[in-house]
Design a protein around this nucleic acid. Structure first.
Length: 312
DNA sequence: CTCCAGGAACTCC
DNA sequence: GGAGTTCATGGA
């Protein structure tokens, strides 16, 4: 069992920073590039290390992958690491155990082989524990849309409806509250170039703001189907968007979002079908692995060449 | 059941 | 470089 810990606290250009060990095989690149979050971007640095920076929880942080099984977090105190980032990055979960589980529930030899390849390709991905409202709103925007454009719309939304805050003379914006969007109008939201999703965003904001849907209702729902049913009362929230919000925002790792990529994986690698319910409480992690495997590696067996290309 | 909505990025030739 | 495709959901 791995146990993350702060190795040391230091300053980077006056910004509090920490070096963290005990992170297992955590991959900054795969975690922030696998399409689960939209407010992180790669950052260039002189040492050619993988680095991603983003705005979350009214903070701007950068995660840097080192080659000695540590990460640096620029913009985090030791206290913030234990209170926020440890949980946000799911570093407290034993992914080695989960990976073994995902294989052990399968019977067919060919299914096992596919899953093992997907696990190997995706090794290091962590399902982030994102803010429920941010995840819900972001995945409403994501529908029928591609990642660059989703990011653009969310950025515009944060600049229009979020709150500015400053770190070392740089201005960043928080993700808008449900209240600020609920008090706006679909017509105003439409100016973010989000098209027909504007009224969906507004409907979600109103329902969350007036508390006809609360995180407690979702978290206390007895099973997946009832949690799903609550979210789907929101206009524009179907099975896919609901599953993404539950998986990435509400911590329901049994959610299994089915999009075109997953359909493609299923047809290609599981021609006889695969009941994702077999993966039980870790179905969402299996989904991310299969998604990443197909989306980024084309469902090809991982090689040293593909690893190098991926590091670029 | 099928088509369309608004739009930019991506794919293919 | 230009034409065609992608993408989730709900309403007509």
């Amino acid at each position: 069992m791995i146990k993350p810990f702060v190795i040391c606290e230091y300053k980077t250009n006056m910004i509090p920073s920490v070096k963290v060990g005990g992170i297992g095989d955590f991959s900054v690149y795969k975690t922030f590039d696998c399409g689960q979050c939209f407010r992180f971007d790669p950052v260039e640095n002189s040492s050619n290390k993988v680095e991603f920076g983003g705005t979350v929880f009214r903070r701007y942080v950068r995660f840097i992958q080192n080659d000695d099984n540590t990460i640096d977090i620029i913009g985090s105190t030791e206290e913030d690491f234990y209170n926020i980032w440890l949980n946000y990055l799911s570093l407290d979960m034993n992914y080695d155990f989960i990976n073994k589980e995902l294989v052990s529930v399968l019977d067919k030899k060919s299914d096992i082989a596919v899953m093992q390849n997907a696990i190997e390709a995706s090794r290091g991905i962590r399902i982030l524990r994102q803010d429920p409202w941010e995840a819900l709103c972001s995945f409403i925007i994501s529908q029928n849309n591609n990642i660059p454009r989703i990011k653009k719309i969310i950025k515009a939304m944060c600049e229009k409806y979020g709150e500015p805050f400053s770190v070392e003379n740089e201005t960043y914006y928080t993700f808008p509250t449900a209240e600020s969007l609920a008090l706006s109008t679909p017509e105003e939201i439409f100016t973010l170039k989000c098209g027909f999703r504007a009224r969906y965003i507004h409907d979600a904001a109103v329902k969350i703001h007036e508390k006809s849907i609360t995180p407690e209702m979702i978290l206390n729902a007895p099973d997946y189907e009832s949690a799903d049913a609550i979210l789907r009362k929101i206009k524009g929230v179907g099975a896919k968007v609901s599953a993404c919000a539950l998986l990435f925002g509400y911590g329901r790792l049994d959610a299994f979002p089915i999009d075109v990529w997953i359909k493609r994986v299923m047809e290609k690698h599981f021609p006889d079908g695969l009941d994702y319910k077999k993966f039980g409480n870790f179905a969402g992690i299996a989904q991310q692995y299969l998604f990443y495997y197909e989306r980024y590696l084309g469902g090809n067996k991982i090689t040293s060449t593909s690893l190098q290309n991926e590091a670029m």
